[in-house]
């Protein structure tokens, strides 16, 4: 199985971390992984994205033209990448932030009220974890326990007390898809 995904949003929303967590979880399961970030001035406030590919077989190119899944956390991401989603693919977007919603009929579209839910959880910074939960529900490409292990690897030890909050956010994101 191969999942070719793009995570896109404003710099600071944690889109690079979403892809990275998924990548670490992939490595834990000995899958092939490429994680290609945008690293320009957009990281300091503009639109940032990362292409993350997880696969059971070797990955030819980390640069791809079309995506299985678009994770969009802001309007420019929908505007720019909606047409790049493969037929039968997915768009998962933060419906709190995005006004002009994706309209394609040949893909699956998931509206997730991510920012609103983050406020409800009393921490706007967990938006990315909520959305990653939704992503994994739609694309069960790695096991949940691998995500938890990846969290421990990615977060420096001084932040490990925040892991339960991140797990809660992640689980909430999964539930938002189930509804």
């Amino acid at each position: 199985m191969t999942q070719e995904a793009i995570f896109s949003g404003f710099g600071g929303q944690g889109v690079l971390t979403m892809g990275m967590l998924l990548g670490y979880a992939g490595i834990i399961e000995d899958k092939e992984v490429t994680w290609m970030p945008s690293y320009g001035p957009e990281m300091r406030g503009g639109t940032a994205n990362c292409i993350t590919i997880i696969s059971d077989t070797s990955i030819s190119s980390p640069i791809i033209s079309t995506f299985d899944t678009l994770m969009a956390l802001n309007q420019p991401s929908v505007d720019k990448f909606e047409e790049k989603v493969k037929k039968g693919g997915n768009i998962i977007y933060d419906s709190t932030n995005i006004i002009n919603v994706p309209t394609r009929k040949d893909i699956n579209i998931y509206a997730v009220p991510g920012s609103e839910t983050a406020v409800r959880l009393k921490n706007s910074k967990v938006l990315n974890m909520i959305m990653l939960g939704s992503f994994l529900k739609v694309n069960p490409i790695v096991k949940l326990e691998s995500i938890w292990k990846a969290l421990e690897q990615v977060l420096p030890e001084r932040y490990h007390h925040l892991i339960p909050l991140n797990q809660e956010a992640f689980n909430t994101g999964m539930e938002l898809i189930a509804k």
């Binding site: 992984v33 490429t34 994680w35 290609m36 970030p37």
Partner: peptide
């Protein structure tokens, strides 16, 4: 890009 990207 090769400098910035992550792989196994």
């Amino acid at each position: 890009a090769i400098g910035q990207m992550m792989e196994k």
